[in-house]
Structure formats: C-alpha cells, structure tokens
C-alpha cells in the first residue's frame, strides 16, 4: 500500500447522546478509487462532511496528505476537490462564470487550465450558456470540472449518483476512471448503491451504524469469491450425511432434492466421485458464483439497500 492520501484517526461525531460516526480509524491509499459503502443513515455522508469541514468533528482527526483538517483547514482544502451530493451551481451564471468563481479561490489557475478541464469533460460547446439551461448530467459534469480545476490530490464525492439516470451514472463512472488515469487523482466516493460501487471502486470501506465493519479490496473479493455448489440428488438425506462427513460440511443446506454447500469449484470432481461411489443418484451438479452483493449482505446483516 502506497502513502495514504487520507488518514482518519478516531473520527467521531456525537449529536446529543447518539454517536453518528463512531471512532473511525483507517487510511485511504493514494491512487485508488475508494468507496464508502453502507446502508442509508450509516454515517457515510457525515464522515465525508467532517473530512471537508462542513460538519464539525466531535472527536478525532482527519488528515489529508499529512495536513490536519482541524488545525490547518485552508491548507488541507487546497488538496481536495469535492462534490457533495448533486452539485448545485449558480443557475444565473454561465458554466464558465461558475468555473471562474471556483477557480478564484485557488492560486494559479490559468485560463488555459479552465479550457483544458472544460474540454476534458466535453463541455466546450455549452460552457457559455447559463447553468439553468443545463441538464442534470451536464451539471454533474460541471461539478466534476469545478472539483478538479486546481489539480487536487483527492477528489471526494458524496452520493454523486443520486438523481442521475443510468446513462448519467455511467458517464460519471467513465470520467472518474479517466481522471484517476490521466490526472493521477485519488477518489473517495460514498454510495449506498452496491452495484455502482462494484463497478467503480478498487477498495471499499463498509460502514454500518457509524462503525467501520470491514475494508475490502474488490479485486481480491472478485478473485476470492467463494462458490456455491448446488447438487440435485435422489436421496438428499444420505448425500448430506456423506458430504458433511467428507467435507466438514460448511454451511450445507438442503431444500427438496437440492443440496447446497459452499466450496471451491475445484471440489466438484471429488464430490461427484464420492456421490457415485455411494450409489447416490445424481441429477445435476453446478457451481454458482456468490455475488459481491451476497457477501456484503452477509457482512452488514442484510440491511443493505441495493
């Protein structure tokens, strides 16, 4: 793991008696698209808003590129570009004037840089139109443009896909991929949409009830995905007895004539041999890949909203 672009240390938000975010401590490695995943109300948005200073921290610390957000807010924010939910722009200004507005906050953003970002996001044809005539997808693109103007090291997106249609979501995903490649930006994105995160992220932190449940690399998760083997037999009771003795029967379930067990695909020939040797009639054996969704639902106890 390379140098961490964001470090959270015991980050906590308490409102009244309730801990919205509870003692989060983890590092986000540089150069990745990192997802915050969790059901609605898990504290993803609160965490992100604490990182960018919209919400005060009750306890703990967020450190961006080694700079504490709490004690050196202005410096820390020079490394950050953000879109918090749907990017709301000044509708009475043109797209270009909006970008000027955000560019003025940073030092040394040239007209050329603005032009470059505008064409990177394919906005050049309508950049001088008022934002009130933009579609949501175009506003989203303008939001991304605003966030990357100053070449941040870290791009933070909070529920960026809310309100976007499937085409818009796909477009956003493509831009994020492009940005990590072409501008070398690390991205943190929060979502409750698992399928989205699966397509977008390299790694996800699963947050539930304000607590960190797990951090997973999606690539590992994909390759290590365990397989479910479904066997249709004539005598399921006998088969269960046989197989649970032979394979320490992890998570074996019987429903009707079907026997389900968790094992690697490579176990299938062995299982077949055992069943045939015991003269149990086999009508079919097939392997089912357990989806990431299933895995996450297991981890979060089925509370995931997909």
């Amino acid at each position: 793991m390379s140098e961490a672009v964001l470090q959270l240390r015991n980050l906590t938000k308490t409102i009244g008696m309730r801990k919205i975010v509870d003692n989060l401590t983890f590092d986000v490695p540089a150069g990745e698209i990192f997802g915050f995943l969790g059901p609605n109300g898990a504290g993803k948005t609160t965490t992100i808003r604490m990182i960018v200073g919209l919400i005060s921290m009750s306890k703990g610390e967020a450190i961006i590129k080694g700079v504490s957000v709490r004690s050196h807010f202005e410096l820390a924010m020079t490394h950050v570009g953000a879109i918090v939910e749907n990017p709301e722009m000044y509708k009475f200004l043109t797209g270009y004037q909006n970008l000027i507005h955000y560019a003025r906050r940073h030092n040394g953003i040239t007209k050329e840089r603005i032009k470059e970002v505008v064409s990177l996001l394919g906005l050049q044809n309508r950049i001088h139109e008022k934002v009130k005539r933009y579609s949501l997808g175009m506003r989203q693109r303008l939001g991304v443009a605003q966030a990357i103007l100053h070449r941040p090291s870290l791009l933070i997106l909070d529920e960026p896909t809310n309100g976007l249609d499937p085409a818009g979501i796909r477009e956003l995903r493509d831009y994020l991929r492009k940005l990590t490649k072409e501008e070398g930006i690390s991205v943190i994105v929060s979502s409750h949409l698992l399928s989205e995160m699966e397509l977008m992220c390299d790694r996800v932190a699963i947050i539930q009830a304000g607590k960190l449940v797990d951090i997973r690399s999606l690539q590992e998760a994909r390759s290590q995905a365990q397989t479910k083997i479904v066997i249709e037999v004539g005598d399921p009771a006998a088969a269960e007895q046989l197989l649970s003795a032979a394979m320490d029967g992890s998570g074996m379930t019987v429903s009707g004539n079907q026997l389900e067990l968790t094992a690697d695909k490579s176990a299938i020939p062995h299982i077949t041999k055992l069943l045939v040797a015991s003269e149990i009639e086999v009508f079919g054996i097939h392997a089912v890949q357990k989806s990431l969704e299933d895995q996450f639902l297991e981890i979060t106890g089925g509370e995931m909203i997909v």
Binding site: G53, E74, M77, V80, N86, E88, Y90, Y102, R105
Partner: peptide
Amino acid sequence: WGTIKLLLVGPA
C-alpha cells in the same frame, strides 16, 4: 440554492 456546500469546501 444549495451552493453553500461547494462554497465552504474550499481553501477559504
């Protein structure tokens, strides 16, 4: 307008 979020998330 909802622009407050982007206004405050900046180096100011």
